[in-house]
Amino acid sequence: MEHRHKTSPSRKKFKVVASARKVLFTFFWDMERVVHMEFLDQGQTVNYERYISTLRSLKLSFGRLRSDKDSILQHDNARPHTSRQTQDALRKLERTTLPHPAYSLGLAPSDYYLFRQLKKYLKVHHYDNDEEVIADVRRWCSGRSSEFFADGVRQLVKR
């Protein structure tokens, strides 16, 4: 707050750089690699229909990468993830689902491990458009070793 005389001109605020847009993506990973990743178009939101579509794509990715059905799927408790329709789709996916305690953001492995590392990497780069961000995120993910992903799962067990 600053004290000024009534007749003093108001301060002008200049925007030096346009605000960065956000790129939203859905991401599934296991102890070895990224299993499935989808980027949302600008303005698109995640509702249960969109999430069910993602789960169908995930099932195809599982089919290509894993023959076993011993995978455990953990996701947070956002509304699109907990709807009745989503729960039905998860049963059709035929994967065990690890329940996520209410409001326990510290348990989501992507939040405390993977996204923290990705944010550190992206922070020092400048992108002109969404396609560059998406390409760099894909490149970063494919450059992680299986040990990187295994460490994230091990840390979840500790938490």
Rank of each mutant, 00 (worst) to 15 (best):
V23T: 12
L24D: 07
F25I: 02
F25V: 01
T26K: 10
F27E: 12
F28Y: 12
W29S: 08
W29I: 08
M31H: 03
M31L: 01
M31G: 04
E32Q: 09
R33N: 12
R33M: 10
V35T: 14
V35M: 14
M37G: 02
M37K: 10
M37N: 04
M37F: 03
F39Q: 02
L40P: 01
L40S: 08
Q42H: 10
Q42S: 11
G43Q: 10
Q44L: 06
V46H: 10
V46I: 15
V46E: 05
N47P: 09
Y48V: 06
E49V: 12
R50H: 15
R50S: 12
R50I: 14
Y51I: 09
S53W: 15
L55W: 08
R56K: 15
L58H: 13
K59E: 11
K59R: 12
K59T: 06
L60V: 08
S61Q: 12
F62S: 03
F62W: 09
F62K: 06
G63H: 06
R64E: 11
S67D: 13
K69H: 06
K69A: 02
D70S: 08
D70W: 00
L73Y: 14
D76A: 06
D76Y: 10
N77P: 02
N77F: 06
N77H: 11
A78T: 13
A78H: 12
P80Q: 09
T82I: 10
Q85T: 06
T86I: 11
Q87I: 14
D88G: 03
A89I: 05
A89Q: 09
R91W: 11
R91Q: 14
K92M: 04
R95I: 06
R95S: 05
R95P: 00
L98R: 07
H100V: 08
H100N: 08
P101N: 07
A102T: 14
A102Q: 10
Y103T: 07
Y103P: 03
S104V: 09
G106D: 13
L107C: 02
A108V: 11
S110V: 03
S110L: 07
Y112D: 02
Y113M: 01
L114T: 03
L114M: 05
R116M: 01
R116W: 09
K120Y: 11
L122P: 02
K123G: 13
K123E: 15
V124Q: 15
V124E: 15
V124C: 14
H125N: 15
H125D: 11
H125L: 15
H125T: 12
H126Y: 13
H126V: 15
Y127G: 04
N129E: 10
D130A: 11
E131R: 06
E131N: 10
E132N: 03
E132H: 04
V133C: 04
I134Q: 11
I134F: 01
A135N: 04
D136G: 02
R138C: 01
R138Q: 04
F148Y: 09
F148Q: 02
A150Y: 05
D151C: 03
G152K: 04
G152H: 09
V153Y: 01
R154I: 00
R154E: 06
